[in-house]
Design a protein around this nucleic acid. Structure first.
Length: 249
DNA sequence: AGCGGGACCTGTGGGC
DNA sequence: TGCCCACAGGTCCCGC
């Protein structure tokens, strides 16, 4: 739906699903105002969504500006900035969402999924890291958190997803939850672009144990971390702490 | 089915 | 200093 159909809409709530930011809208001036509608943003690599005072002009990489009125009547601007222009904005209603394959097939939230369900979803012969990055398997895990979680769990990224033992997949899920919670508590990972809605950089990047550390020493065992490619994505891991052989436990 | 490779973009950092 | 290349938090599409 055209962004212009948002004129007059009211922001009712802001939430997240996987890597998607969802702004729930109501009170649109359009004829279909009774239908729940959403402004959905995917920031991809370099997108940012933030508010500024109304007198702030769009920057070089501003892709979209929404002119808001706060409950107290004052004005503000909501910017969607994106250096690389990979990010997406869309206006949708439930009909559009139900036809959107990415949305329909989005896997469960990693912080909510049960151990057994997670194990069942790790199927097939592809690399377990590729499975983690597949948003249909679990929603929201990206390259950084895949590498960090696999290291934390001592699971080799190239292991076939379906070959993990029950203990291994359970360990992996625990690590994913632990890493994600820790990162959230530190406002995420700012490598260069990322800032939160307040414009503040995260600090989880200071805690990376493998991501971006190829050639450096493993913080657990001291051996040199290796870099490879898995499913086209840069992947760093420790050959000693994440052996390819099945862990016996 | 699932993989690799390329496309989409702009900016940055390293090597020469 | 400056140029060129490789690479970057993600999907999506194509051909094999």
């Amino acid at each position: 739906m055209p962004l212009a159909t948002l004129a007059g809409a009211r922001v009712a709530a802001v939430r997240r699903r996987g890597k998607l930011l969802i702004i729930d809208l109501d009170g649109s001036v359009s004829a279909r105002s009774s239908i729940p509608r959403y402004l959905i943003a995917h920031l991809r690599m370099t997108g940012r969504l933030f508010t500024k005072e109304a007198n702030i002009e769009p920057g070089k990489h501003s892709r979209c500006v929404f002119y808001l009125t706060r409950p107290d009547g004052t004005a503000a601007n909501l910017f969607f900035d994106d250096t690389r222009a990979f990010g997406k904005l869309m206006v949708a209603d439930d009909v559009i969402l139900s036809k959107w394959e990415f949305w329909r097939e989005l896997g469960p939230e990693p912080l909510e999924i049960a151990t057994r369900e997670f194990a069942l979803r790790l199927r097939g012969t592809r690399a377990v890291k590729s499975a983690l990055l597949d948003q249909k398997v679990v929603a929201g895990i990206g390259n950084i958190y895949a590498d960090e979680s696999l290291f934390d769990a001592g699971v080799n990224p190239l292991r076939a997803a379906g070959d993990l033992s029950g203990a291994e997949s359970s360990r992996l899920l625990k690590s994913i939850k632990k890493i994600l919670k820790k990162s959230i508590s530190q406002c995420g990972s700012s490598i260069r672009d990322y800032v939160d809605a307040n414009g503040d950089a995260g600090s989880f990047q200071n805690t990376f144990r493998v991501y971006g550390r190829s050639g450096k020493n493993c913080l657990k065992c001291g051996s040199v971390l290796v870099k490879t490619r898995v499913g086209g994505r840069a992947t760093v891991f420790c050959e000693r702490c994440q052996p390819f052989e099945k862990t016996l436990d």
